[in-house]
Simulated assay, not measured.
Amino acid sequence: MLAFGIRRLTISLCVALTVSIVAFFLLHMSGDIAQAIAGTDATPEQVSQIRVQFGLDRPLVEQYLNWAWGVLRFDFGTSFYFRDQVTTLIAQRLPVTLALGGISLLLALIISVPLGVLAAVKQGGWIDRAALMFCVLGQALPTFWLGLSLIIVFSVTLRWLPVSGSGTWAHFVLPSVALGWYAIPAVMRLTRNGMLDVLASDYIRTARAKGLRMPTVLFKHALRNAMIPVVALAAVQFGFMLGGSIVVEAVFSMEGLGQLAWQSIARQDFPVVQAIVLVLAVLYIGLTLLADILNAILDPRIRIA
C-alpha cells in the first residue's frame, strides 16, 4: 500500500509541476503584462519602467523560477489591482468556495446514490425510467439558468432564502442546489450501472440463495463494490465544482474564489489568475490522489495491479 501511495504521489507532483509551467507561460504569452498594468494611456517610458519594476524584462524562464520559488514559500506575489498579497486574497476567498463545493457534492451524493440503487433494483420499471428522465433533465439545464430560476422562485417570489451573499448557511442553499444539480446525473448513472453489474455477479446470487435479506445483500455486499468507480467520479466532480463555481458565485454574488477569478481576469490581474489556476489544479490533483487511495483500500486488486 505504501509503494502504491508513493507512485501515485510522484505522478501527482509531476502533474502539478506541468500545470504550473503551462499556466505561467500561457498567461505571459497572452499579452503584454506591463502594458496591461500601465493602462492604454501610458507612455512607452512608463511601460518600460513598470516592466523593470515587476521584473518583466527578465527572461521567461528566470521569471518562472522566481515565481515557483515564491510559490514553494506560499508567496504568490502582489495583486496588480487589489494591491494586496495574493496569498491573503486566496485565503479569504477559498473557504467560501470549498464550503460551496463540499455542500454541493454532499447534496448530489445524497440524491444520486440512493436513486441509482433504486433504478438498478427496479430495472425497467417506472422508477428506472423516471431516474433516467431526471438525468436527462439535469444535464439539459444550464447552471446559470437554474440559479436564476431558483432566485426568482425562492428568493423573489416566496422570500424564503436570501438572494446573494455568503454570510450564513441560508446563503449556501440555492447556490449548492444549482452547483450540485449538474453532478447528480453522472453519479446516478454510474451508481446504477455499477449496481447492475454487481447484482448480476455470482457472489450476489449465492448470497441471495443463502437466504440473506435483500437490504443486507444490497448495502453490505453489492454497494461496496459498486461504489468504487463512484468514489473516483465524486473526487473529479468536486474538482469540477471548485473550478466551475465561477458561474454560480457570479449569479449569487458570493465572495469566493470563483468570483475573484472572474474579477482578476476582467482586470488582467495576472498574479491572482496564476495563483488561482495553480491552487485549483493542486486541489483537483489532491482529490484525484485521495480517490485513488480510497479505491485501493476498497479494492485491493487495484494496488496489486
Rank of each mutant, 00 (worst) to 15 (best):
I204Q: 04
N295C: 15
V61D: 00
Q49K: 13
I90L: 14
V272K: 06
I37R: 13
A266S: 11
L60W: 07
V198M: 01
Q139L: 11
L72Q: 13
D292H: 05
V231D: 00
G39E: 08
D32V: 04
L283Q: 04
A178N: 13
L26A: 14
L98V: 10
F76A: 15
T97F: 08
L283D: 04
A266H: 11
D84E: 15
I302S: 03
V163N: 05
L9V: 10
G31C: 08
Q92N: 15
I90S: 04
E62Y: 00
G147N: 01
R189S: 12
I33C: 06
R93Q: 12
I127V: 15
I265S: 08
F154T: 10
R301V: 02
L100D: 07
F172K: 12
E45K: 05
D292Y: 06
F154N: 11
A99P: 00
T206N: 00
F74Q: 06
V19D: 05
L280W: 09
V121M: 15
N66M: 07
L107M: 11
F270D: 02
G70Y: 14
A131N: 12
D75Y: 09
M214P: 03
V272N: 09
Q92H: 15
S30R: 14
F144I: 03
Q63M: 00
L190T: 09
T43P: 05
M1T: 06
L199S: 03
L89Q: 12
M254D: 02
M29E: 08
V273S: 02
Q92W: 14
L137W: 10
R205E: 02
G243H: 05
L196Y: 03
Q263M: 10
L233A: 10
A16K: 05
G124P: 07
V273Y: 08
L212C: 05
R7G: 09
S112G: 12
A91F: 15
A68C: 04
I297D: 01
F24Q: 05
L289H: 09
L283M: 09
V279D: 13
R8T: 09
P59C: 03
P162C: 08
L289D: 11
R205V: 03
V231T: 09
S20P: 02
S164W: 10
F240A: 11
R159D: 11
V156T: 13
G101L: 12
S104I: 09
F80P: 08
P300S: 10
A3T: 14
L280N: 13
V71H: 01
A296L: 02
T191K: 05
T78Q: 15
T216C: 05
A250I: 03
V273M: 12
G286C: 07
